[in-house]
Amino acid sequence: MLIGKSGKIPSSEITPEGMYLNRRQFIGKSAAVVAGASMGSGIGGSIEPENSQKDWSKVRSELDEELTPFDDVTSYNNFYEFGTGKSDPVRNAHTLRPRPWTIEVGGLCDNPGTYGLEDFIKPGNIEDRVYRMRCVEAWSMVIPWQGFSLKDVIDQAKPSGSARFVEFRTLHDLEQMPGQRYGVLRWPYVEGLRLDEAKHPLTMLITGVYGKTLPNQNGAPIRLIVPWKYGFKGIKSIVSMRFLEEMPMNTWKRSASHEYGFYANVNPDVSHPRWSQARERRIGEFRRRRTLMFNGYADEVASLYSGMDLRTHY
């Protein structure tokens, strides 16, 4: 646990009280941690779970929202490395070779390293998480992910006291990601989190969806999911993770900083300059539904931003 440590607690380890008090609440409620979801062997980096035949209709009740069908989750994607249309990634992402794969952990930390995917993923730690996913374009899904806490990786890397941010990068390879031949965005895709956001128990590194190995178009072999933020924060096909003192410049902010910020917390009260964020279309539903503050995770994460003006820090 984060508290109760003896000796000097590094600044990066201090947890806001509100978050601590809320831990029990979210573990019971929104995280939808499914018991007994042990995943298969890590041989060759394969994480095909033993229970891929699981009855996903049961998972639904834990978030009390219907799951978005697998076909929609895997055919309607924003992954500009494979084209800018939503149906492009499913058609084009076959060029990605998610294994073998290496991930570099570096920057301001005591324990940097380069890991093969199979060493990075610890099968015993894989959990199911059913999360809402809210895209900045005002559509949303409910997705049963499999993955592990980013906090586990951070704790192992031992960031130094001066580290305040984590920066992630996607693979940069024009052969595997043909969309990178076009200057639509600056490549490689970069995202970042404040260290406390990164260590939040809701923040996950994801390796599977619906009990299956993460498909290429969803960010194979490993991607980030931060459920209270707009989907573009969930960087895909990660190859590097670095601890920094300064706030990293994320790709969409670089592309249009008046429209996309660093924080990108789901917020129905702060409109995108070009469209309203007050409502969203849940994929599969007809009428738009109201967007929830922090995508419905306010109880768990609002305290991370106390005292911050969320209009300026959008």
Binding site: R274, W275, S276, F286, R288
Partner: peptide, 20 residues
Amino acid sequence: VLDQTLDFEFIIEDVLERPY
């Protein structure tokens, strides 16, 4: 009709406030 389900509150806001 389909996208905004004739919620005029939102349609009017869009037409007045969203330049595109």
